[in-house]
């Protein structure tokens, strides 16, 4: 922090300033330290201390088989995510065709329903168990994914199509270049946001049949017995995992679509 001059320090509080990456890192450290301090000094006795959470994490990992549970959940989420991507991309691209537009709009509106009321009909269709969970997660994520992705497709300016048309491209090539390739970076961004929605839904979904385990079921079990340190330990793991996935997908996006980043830099 000693490298910061007074003027540099002032910059941090001005809107729309570009800062050095080392400064950005220092900022993150500052905020983490602040949060940790507030947590340590917290007057709420029921809130477990960082030490307690750390101990609970160790116990969960070594004695309660957290690793395999984590694997179960990861598998479920990735499975559902793969299905979500396939269904949602197809639906979003379908907005190009007038016939399908009402259908896509309807799917998008289903996100208001939430999952709880859907367990029963979904059980009838899937027969319960693993496929029920995949179906519910896929459904939940698809409604959000389609909402964002269909918007991306709808926002493609008309001139983008006309530009390809005057070049003499066929409608099929125009679809591929403008709709599919031209929005790939945004699709990956949408996917990134929606992976987070999957994590948010996981407790509910895995709670349906806890026997099959998973990290969400684990949380519910600890919660029932007011084992708060354990609950927070699991939340922490979910947070770290989510962040790792998020980071990984960010790297992937930059790798596949370097142009997206170029358009975002502010200078």
């Amino acid at each position: 922090m000693s490298t910061l001059s007074t003027r540099g320090l002032a910059r941090l509080f001005l809107p729309n300033r570009v800062i050095r990456s080392s400064t950005a890192l220092a900022l993150v450290a500052f905020w983490m330290a602040t949060v940790l301090t507030v947590w340590l000094l917290s007057p709420f006795a029921s809130l477990p201390t960082p030490g307690e959470v750390w101990t609970a994490l160790g116990a969960l990992w070594w004695r309660h088989g957290m690793g395999p549970e984590l694997f179960t959940t990861m598998k479920l989420i990735l499975h559902a995510l793969a299905l979500t991507v396939a269904i949602s991309m197809a639906l979003s691209y379908a907005t190009m065709i007038a016939f399908f537009r009402p259908l896509v709009a309807a799917v998008s509106k289903l996100r208001f329903l939430g999952l709880t009321g859907l367990v029963f009909p979904f059980t009838l269709v899937t027969g319960g168990g693993y496929s029920l969970k995949v179906a519910l997660l896929t459904f939940g994520m698809t409604t959000f994914f389609v909402t964002s992705m269909a918007q991306v497709v709808l926002e493609i300016p008309r001139v983008a199509f006309d530009h390809m048309r005057v070049l003499g491209a066929s409608e099929r090539r125009i679809f591929w270049e403008v709709v599919v390739r031209g929005t790939l970076d945004r699709a990956l961004d949408v996917l990134r946001q929606n992976a987070a929605i999957g994590w948010a839904m996981i407790t509910m979904v895995e709670g349906i049949s806890r026997a099959e385990g998973g990290i969400g079921a684990m949380i519910l079990n600890q919660n029932k017995h007011f084992l708060l340190a354990e609950v927070y330990a699991i939340l922490l793991v979910i947070l770290v995992l989510g962040l790792l996935m998020d980071y990984g997908m960010g790297v992937l996006t930059d790798l596949l679509c370097p142009y997206g980043r170029l358009e975002r830099v502010r200078r």
Partner: peptide, 9 residues
């Protein structure tokens, strides 16, 4: 065109 559209990707 007026604003020179290109394939951004």
């Amino acid at each position: 065109f007026q604003d020179y559209p290109l394939l951004r990707h």
